[in-house]
Design a protein around this nucleic acid. Sequence first.
DNA 1: CAAAGCCATTAGTAACACTAATGGCTGAAT
DNA 2: ATTCAGCCATTAGTGTTACTAATGGCTTTG
Lengths: 282, 282
Amino acid sequence: MARSLPPLNWFRSFEAAARHLNFTAAADELGLTQSAISQQIRSLETRFGVRLFERKARGLTITDDGRKLLPQVGAALEMLGAASAKFDTGPTESLLSVATSVSVAQWILAPRINCFLAAHPGVRLRFLSTVWPDEFKASIADVEIRFGAEKQVGYKALRLGPDRLVAVYNPELVGESSRAPLIETVGTSMNWQKWAAAAGTVLDRSPVIYVDNFGLALELAIQGQGIALTSSLLAAEKLASGELKLLEDASLSNPEGYFLAADENVEAAKNFKDWLLEEIRS
Amino acid sequence: MARSLPPLNWFRSFEAAARHLNFTAAADELGLTQSAISQQIRSLETRFGVRLFERKARGLTITDDGRKLLPQVGAALEMLGAASAKFDTGPTESLLSVATSVSVAQWILAPRINCFLAAHPGVRLRFLSTVWPDEFKASIADVEIRFGAEKQVGYKALRLGPDRLVAVYNPELVGESSRAPLIETVGTSMNWQKWAAAAGTVLDRSPVIYVDNFGLALELAIQGQGIALTSSLLAAEKLASGELKLLEDASLSNPEGYFLAADENVEAAKNFKDWLLEEIRS
DNA sequence: CAAAGCCATTAGTAACACTAATGGCTGAAT
DNA sequence: ATTCAGCCATTAGTGTTACTAATGGCTTTG
C-alpha cells in the first residue's frame, strides 16, 4: 500500500463487468452509463498495465489477469459492504461464548479449562477461534481474548501478562547449537532484528519459517523445528519445566499482546475473566 | 452492496487515522493535509451516522463503532493493495506460502516440517493460518490445506487421510472413567449423537465444551479436559504412542476433512504437496 | 502565561466522474 | 449478400468532488 489505490468505483465496475461479462449490464446494475464503465475499466487497465477483458462483438471475455484480480476485489468489496452495514448480534444463549485467539486457546486455556468448569458447575463453553481479531465473533461472544496493541483495544480490556517477546528453543531436539532455523511471527511490530538489538547480538541468517500467530511459533519450537520468537506468556509453562530454553536470556517488551474483555452483564463471563486473571497471576 | 459504498480514500484515511490516532500523522503518511483527513472522517461519520473517533487535545481515541469498523476496512485495504501490487513488476520471492487450517498446522505440519526443509534447502516458508476456509489466503498462497466437505472444494484437491471421526481421551489424566466431560466440534455434520449411534451406545449427558476446530478438541483431550470427538488423522501419533486412547473403538466415516491443493506451476508447491502426501501415507 | 499540538471549518479551484452523443466493429437474421 | 442489433470506444461538456491554504478554537505542556 505504498502508492495510492485506484478508486473504489473502478473496482466495483470491474467486479460487476466480470460477473455480467457485459459493460452495458454492469452499467445498468450500478446505475451508471456504459460509457462510464468503459472508461473506468480502461483507466484500471492503464493503471495496472494489463488487459483485464477481451472485447467481443457481443460482450466480453475475462483475461487471465482479470481472473487473477477478481477474487481479491470481490472479497474486499464484500468486506467493505459488510463493514458499512450494521451487524446483528445473535441472541445470547445460556452457553458461555469465548472468542479467543487460537494461540491462547491452545497454550493457556486448553491446559486449564477444567479448573474453571470445576469451580462453575453447569457452565458450558463455546470457543470461537480466531487468528486475528474478529469483530463479528467478538460481537457475539461473552468474552473476548484478542491479540493486538493496547491503543487499538477498548480501555476496558485487560492485558494478559506479564508478557514479553522471547526467543525459545527445545534443548533436547535442537541442542545448544545456534545454527537452528529462525522462526518469526508476522503481524506484530517485533522481529528478529529487534530481538538481536536488545540481546546485543548479531544475526548471521534470515528467518526460514514465517507464521502468523505466536502459538504456532511456539509449537514449532517445541517440535524442534528451530528457534522461535514468541510470547513469554504462552511459553511460560514450557520454560518453567525446562522443555524450552531461552536463547541468550534476552527479552523484549512487546507492544502487542493478548487482551481480555468480558461482558460485565453476564455473570459467567465475569467469573471467567476473574478466573483467568487469577490463573495467570499464579 | 445495495447502495454505493463510500469512496475508498475515506476508508484509507480512517484506517491510517486509527493506526496513528492522529489526523496529522495520518495525513503525512497519505500525502494529504490534515484538513482533508478531517473532512473525510467527518464525511464517513455522517454517512454511517456514528462517531468513529473521539477528538482529544492531543489526538484521537477510537470509539467502539470505530473499532468495529477497523478490521474489515483494514483487511479490505490490504486485499486491494495486494491485488494491485500483483501487477507491479515485483519479482516473486523464493518464499513458499502455505494457507493451512490451524489444526493441520499444529498437529501435522509442526512436528514434521523440518523433514521438508531438510529435503529442500533454500525454501523458506510462510504459514497463513485459518480456522475456516479463507478465499483470500487461498488466492495468495501457493499451497492450501482447507477443512471442508469434498463437494465444496476443487476437484483437484486431495483429501488427507485416511481420516475418521473418533472419540479420544487421555487415560492418564481422565482414567477409564466414562464420566469425563464431552467435547464436541461444531461446524461439521458430525456430533456425539451420531458417534453413539455408530458405537451402539447411549449417551447419558450432553457435551460441556464446544470448539470450532478438531485441533483444539484434540488439545483439550490431551490436557485431560474430557473425551473429544476429533479427527483420527490429527490424533494418529498420539493414538499410536498410547498417550490417547479410543473410546469404544468406534469410528465414523466423516464427510468433512482436510483437503490439499497446490499450484502446479510452482515447483516448491508441488514438492510440498508430494512430500506431505508421502508423510501421511507412512 | 505563552507556546505547542491538533482538530474543525471556510473559501477556492483543479481534477474527477460522470452524461449524452456518436462512431466502429462483429455476429445474427433475413 | 445485406441489414440490423448488440455492444464497446471515444469525445466534449459540466456538475461534483476532493483536495489545499488559511484561520480559528480548545487543551495541554513547559
